[in-house]
């Protein structure tokens, strides 16, 4: 049980959980800072991974990598991950950690979390939340006090639902995965780490990324796919376009598929390093973010057949975005 837990709403679950864990351990790391330090920004088109028959588009690094990157990159930060064979073991360990007063993060499936709005409960198995306490009701049932980073308030969940969410099956099955900070450094050497993190994002997404499906290459592939939607069934076309909007905006990205959040990181980094390049890039990512929102709006309208937009218009806008981002990434890759 943790007294006076300080809950703050975040845009994204994993970066929000990371930021809350830092805050709890007395280190001031904002959500954008956690995101940028972990070099979380990317784009990837994974046509072989299907969600309800539609290809996956990711605007950030895969689940858990943000936490892992932080623990690799920050000297002295140790994050312990633990999975369990069954829910009894998982719950017992969670209870023990709570008794010790440790703030723990859990990987869960959104579908089984009763506090989510009904229509938002999909089978996404990599949702992160923090547990900070538990209580018994009159019937002797255990309820866990949860700080879900993407909610504006704390929530409670009964033990059965939480166990179901922790032990959901399928893609990215959490297997009860639980994590906590085992040790934290006294301070984080931002001056040394920030250039490294920025360079990494530049290299991972710019011209030095040789894969055709991630980084700006992924955007161009999606642009091509959008043009080819003209040959698909109408229903598929509508769902595909709606799916783009959901991947970019709905899944907790802080707007414009993490572009705004990354701009916030660059602003912070610019203040710490006192470098004007970072502020310039931040402004450019803000402008790009606005265009990403425009792109989402066009996709939504095309899907609903509102207004006079064409598939080519959406594809060209995405290509333009890819070219503009490529230029920034290539500059970032040389940042020292």
């Amino acid at each position: 049980m943790i007294d006076n837990f300080d809950h703050q709403q975040a845009a994204h679950c994993e970066t929000g959980a990371a930021s809350a864990l830092f805050r709890h351990h007395g280190l001031d790391v904002s959500e954008p800072m956690a995101f940028g330090l972990a070099s979380g920004l990317t784009y990837a088109y994974l046509p072989f991974v299907k969600i309800n028959g539609l290809p996956l588009m990711a605007y950030r690094m895969p689940p858990r990598l943000i936490l892992k990157m932080l623990s690799w990159r920050i000297p002295g930060l140790k994050i312990r991950f633990k999975t369990f064979r069954n829910d009894a073991e998982g719950q017992a360990f969670l209870d023990r950690k709570l008794d010790e007063g440790t703030l723990v993060g859990l990987q869960t499936s959104v579908f089984f979390l009763p506090y989510f709005p009904q229509e938002m409960r999909f089978h996404f198995n990599a949702h992160n939340l923090l547990v900070f306490g538990k209580e018994q009701d009159e019937q002797g049932q255990t309820h866990y006090q949860i700080s879900d980073p993407v909610f504006s308030h704390t929530v409670t969940t009964d033990a059965d639902s939480l166990n179901q969410a922790r032990f959901a099956k399928g893609a990215l099955a959490p297997k009860g995965r639980l994590y906590y900070f085992e040790s934290v450094p006294e301070r984080i050497d931002f001056e040394r780490l920030l250039p490294k993190a920025i360079r990494f994002t530049g290299k991972a997404n710019g011209k030095r990324n040789l894969t055709p499906i991630s980084g700006v290459g992924g955007m161009k592939m999606v642009a091509k796919r959008i043009e080819k939607l003209a040959e698909d069934r109408k229903r598929y076309r509508q769902l595909f376009l709606g799916h783009i909007v959901r991947m970019q905006e709905e899944i907790g990205t802080g707007g414009a598929g993490f572009r705004y959040m990354y701009a916030a990181f660059l602003q912070e980094a610019g203040d710490i390093l006192n470098r004007s390049e970072c502020q310039d890039w931040a402004q450019r990512f803000i402008d790009l973010g606005d265009q990403w929102r425009e792109f989402a709006l066009i996709c939504a309208r095309l899907s609903k057949e509102r207004g006079d937009h064409s598939l080519k218009e959406a594809a060209d806008l995405l290509r333009q975005l890819a070219d503009d981002e490529l230029e920034i990434y290539n500059q970032m890759a040389k940042f020292r």
Binding site: Q238, E249, A296, L297
Partner: peptide, 12 residues
């Protein structure tokens, strides 16, 4: 946001 709400309703 309208665009997001439409996309979510469509998927549901």
């Amino acid at each position: 946001w309208e665009a997001e709400i439409d996309a979510l309703k469509q998927a549901v």
